[in-house]
């Protein structure tokens, strides 16, 4: 997993006013549309899945890893539960956790980034130094360390991933803020004597929506990956929850006998991350395009 080219975006960022046209501009890229279709497909499965599932996610319909059982499409999983049902049930937890941790991380990072970028001086210096230290901790290792100590809890998964996003988002938003701070309207607002928090909330924030949206997309892609990998390592959601990451962990031993139980969630995760990344790429291209005034 790695970042789309957002580096150059951060610096010049939000000179164009609102990010409203961003979506339209992004939609112009064919890849974005493909990304939206892929993502929508997986989201649909995840959201509607539980309604369509033929069985309860915990009832037994087959022997462990048995395939070709009457009444099932893909056979049984490691305990003999219906693979299709588990698959249909296992997506929304992943989406929810990923969305929550990305949202929280971007929120926290934005606050820190805007404050640091606007205040400047020693506050900025201090915040960014701490930020650099947080950045130095590899994301997955940090998550594993905390999970192994406190134990896998749902809120903890969200908190740990959000915390690891925070410094990364802050860095980008700070750059964008610094560019905005130089603008006339900010200077004007300061001259009128608006309180600082109002300036940050109503003058700066709306003008960094471009990088903000790109960050959100990017962090969402990462979050999906991290939530999934935690599940795969057995450090995420715990049995008997139906969860795509966990499903891969539980069923990988039987991969050769019963490939569906692994292949379905693996395909879904791959499709989702690819879709999210294509959208993010579209957004970031659009943001750069707007900056350069070429918005296609």
């Amino acid at each position: 997993m790695s970042a789309p080219p957002i580096e150059d975006l951060a610096a010049g960022a939000a000179r164009g006013r609102r990010g409203g046209g961003l979506f339209r501009a992004a939609w112009g890229h064919g890849r974005t549309r493909v990304g939206v279709v892929l993502t929508a497909l997986v989201v649909l499965v995840a959201v509607l899945g539980p309604l369509l599932a033929p069985y309860s996610p915990t009832e037994f319909v087959a022997r462990p890893f048995e395939t070709g059982v009457d009444g099932t499409v893909f056979g049984g999983d490691n305990r003999g539960r219906d693979v299709l049902t588990r698959f249909l049930w296992g997506g929304w937890t992943l989406l929810l956790l990923a969305a929550a941790s990305a949202g929280l991380g971007v929120l926290a990072g934005t606050v820190v980034g805007v404050v640091a970028g606007y205040l400047r001086g020693w506050a900025d210096e201090a915040i960014m130094r701490v930020n650099d230290m947080l950045l130095a901790f590899p994301q997955l290792i940090a998550a594993l360390l905390v999970m192994s100590i406190i134990g896998p809890r749902t809120w903890l998964i969200v908190a740990v991933i959000a915390a690891s996003h925070m410094p990364r988002v802050a860095r980008v938003i700070r750059e964008a803020t610094r560019a905005v701070v130089e603008q006339d309207y900010v200077k004007a607002a300061e001259a009128v004597g608006l309180p600082r928090w109002r300036i940050m909330a109503f003058e700066i924030l709306p003008n960094v929506t471009g990088p903000l949206l790109v960050e959100l997309g990017l962090r969402l892609t990462y979050s999906i990956g991290v939530v999934a990998v935690l599940g795969f390592l057995g450090m995420g959601l715990q049995p008997p929850t139906a969860d795509w990451g966990l499903m891969i962990n539980e069923n990988r031993q039987g991969m050769l006998v019963q490939p569906w139980a692994v292949l379905l969630p693996v395909t879904a995760i791959a499709t989702l991350t690819i879709g999210a990344n294509l959208i993010t790429d579209g957004l970031s291209r659009a943001a750069i395009g707007i900056d350069r005034g070429v918005g296609k």
Binding site: T58, E59, P240
Partner: peptide, 23 residues
Amino acid sequence: VVAAAEVFQEQAREAGVTVNLRR
């Protein structure tokens, strides 16, 4: 062993018994 616990959890549901697993 863990599998048995998960199976019991499911079977107990029918009898109105909620089993929380602690691993």
